[in-house]
């Protein structure tokens, strides 16, 4: 237990001192996760809406496939993307391997099914009368879509937050496609894995604390938003 307490004490010291290495790692992590989540939301929310809103022949099969992709291991995604962007890969000439862009690409494959599935779930729960009310009041298809998304906003935000949580905490993609280059592609999780390998727990624990603090803060913000809405509607 002494090891843990000593590590926590030293980690707090690092955090309070705004250690430059720690700050760099946190910034890289946040930047990569932010762009992954942003692009994932831009692609996943409209796709999720379209699947939920429209009736088509293979709808159930598509949803089943998406749900299966939720369990896709990060190392599998890492391998798949690696095969495309490595020097011998189709996109090798783009020199994406071991860059933050490569991590973003891998993380997009990881979270797009998450965002689509949770958006489908959020949109499907919205009463059809919102659609008919908007239509009968003269709304066009785009305006109807906006009304439905507005009513499903908390479910959609929850989908995006879940996706952010998934990418900020994943290690396989960042390690395989980013390469854990210090100052460039070293994220909180890859740094923690490296420090663990070295037997240095202080930075790993400090990063763990930061990671948990972010997750906690995001959830608090979301709960506050939801709580305010629930209180308004009681």
């Amino acid at each position: 237990m002494d090891l843990l307490f000593d590590s926590v004490r030293s980690a707090i010291g690092l955090l309070l001192a705004f250690d430059s290495e720690l700050v760099d790692i946190v910034v890289v992590s946040l930047r990569v996760s932010f762009f992954s989540t942003l692009f994932g939301a831009l692609a996943g929310v409209p796709l999720g809406f379209l699947i939920a809103y429209n009736q088509f022949r293979w709808k159930r099969m598509v949803i089943t496939c998406l749900n299966t992709l939720l369990a896709l291991p990060t190392v599998v995604i890492g391998l798949l993307v690696y095969s495309f962007i490595s020097r011998r890969g189709v996109f090798g000439s783009l020199e994406l391997l071991y860059t933050q862009k490569a991590i973003v690409i891998g993380q997009l494959i990881l979270i797009i099914p998450v965002i689509i599935s949770l958006t489908i779930s959020a949109i499907s729960r919205i009463d059809n009368r919102y659609r008919t009310s908007a239509l009968t009041l003269g709304a066009n298809n785009l305006q109807v879509a906006w009304v439905i998304c507005r009513e499903a906003r908390f479910g959609i935000i929850a989908a995006i937050i879940a996706a952010f949580g998934r990418v900020i905490a994943e290690v396989g993609i960042s390690m395989m496609l980013g390469g854990n280059a210090k100052g460039f592609t070293r994220t909180m999780t890859t740094a923690m894995a490296l420090e663990y390998d070295k037997g240095e727990f202080v930075l790993a624990v400090a990063l763990g604390i930061v990671l948990m603090a972010f997750a906690f803060a995001i959830n608090i913000i979301f709960n506050l938003l939801q709580g305010r809405t629930n209180a308004d509607t009681v």
């Binding site: 009463d127 009368r129 919102y130 009310s133």
Partner: peptide, 9 residues
């Protein structure tokens, strides 16, 4: 059309 149980946005 005004629905039987109208929903407010």
């Amino acid at each position: 059309l005004v629905d039987q149980s109208p929903l407010m946005f």
